[in-house]
């Protein structure tokens, strides 16, 4: 489904601040795979997602979604097949626009935007229905500005927007990191539900080892721009945090350098 072939991403190339975020990185996802991506600070997790989404171009290598080479496509064109949720709850929605307007924008992802109405009455019913599944009471606040919502509500809405038009690939970039633990659990539960219902191929970056272990059918751990652990199937099911930490030490020869991951 997703084929990443030997991509390299270097920031500030040729300067003293040169930083190799991804080096000759390869990864292949099957249809319906739900991969959790974990790693220390600066391991290249977010860079990876941003390269797949087209926020950054890559220095080397290629990225294929299905059979289609998207390496040179700009971000907005890749959005036709990619749904995204960001770490910052403010980034995934337009604060000064209504809930229904945000959903209507997402509903038209991959379509040519013309001079038809930005939102129709028929759609409103559909959105109402979807929103009621979130169980946050948003279905009665269709025209409220998104800026009025809490971080968790906005993140749930972004999740709905990312999946409203079924994407071929769903990218979740530490999408619960900015939320309090209770809210984070709820958003994660919703993510699981959406992924399952749509059988979506998903990459979820997280700093939380427990989340990485509990969710998805495959786990990759990154270190210095490379995959150092790739755990799937039954082996993934039996994984524990202690076990994962030990294997990280063996694979990288270092202690796991992410306090947040250990504390949560």
């Amino acid at each position: 489904m997703l084929t990443i072939k030997g991509i390299t991403k270097i920031f500030n190339e040729g300067t003293v601040n040169e930083n190799i975020a991804l080096s000759n990185f390869s990864l292949t996802l099957e249809e319906g795979d739900f991969v959790t991506v974990i790693g220390g600070n600066g391991a290249g997790k977010s860079t990876l997602l941003n390269c797949v989404a087209g926020v950054y171009g890559v220095n080397q290598g290629s990225i294929l979604i299905g059979e289609k080479d998207v390496t040179k496509l700009p971000e907005y064109k890749r959005a036709d097949v990619i749904g995204r949720v960001f770490q910052d709850p403010m980034k995934g929605t337009a604060a000064d626009m209504g809930i229904e307007e945000n959903l209507a924008l997402a509903y038209r992802r991959g379509k040519i935007r013309g001079l038809g109405w930005g939102i129709s009455n028929k759609e409103r019913q559909i959105y109402k229905n979807y929103l009621s599944h979130l169980d946050l009471g948003l279905e009665d606040r269709l025209s409220d500005k998104v800026g009025l919502l809490s971080g968790g509500q906005r993140q749930a809405l972004t999740l709905l927007m990312a999946t409203l038009k079924k994407p071929r690939l769903l990218l979740l970039d530490e999408h619960t990191a900015a939320l309090d633990p209770k809210t984070a659990e709820k958003v994660l539960k919703l993510s699981d539900q959406f992924v399952k219902e749509g059988n979506l191929t998903t990459m979820m970056v997280t700093h939380n080892m427990r989340h990485a272990i509990e969710h998805g059918n495959r786990l990759i751990m990154m270190h210095e721009g490379k995959v150092i652990l790739d755990i799937k199937g039954k082996e993934k099911k039996d994984l524990t945090v202690e076990n994962l930490l030990k294997r990280f030490g063996q694979a990288s020869g270092e202690e796991f350098a992410n306090d947040r991951a250990l504390l949560s």
Binding site: F86, K91, A94
Partner: peptide
Amino acid sequence: RATGNNSQMARAQGI
């Protein structure tokens, strides 16, 4: 409007 309000979100929605 979405572009002016949040360009990152707009691009993520294919704009």
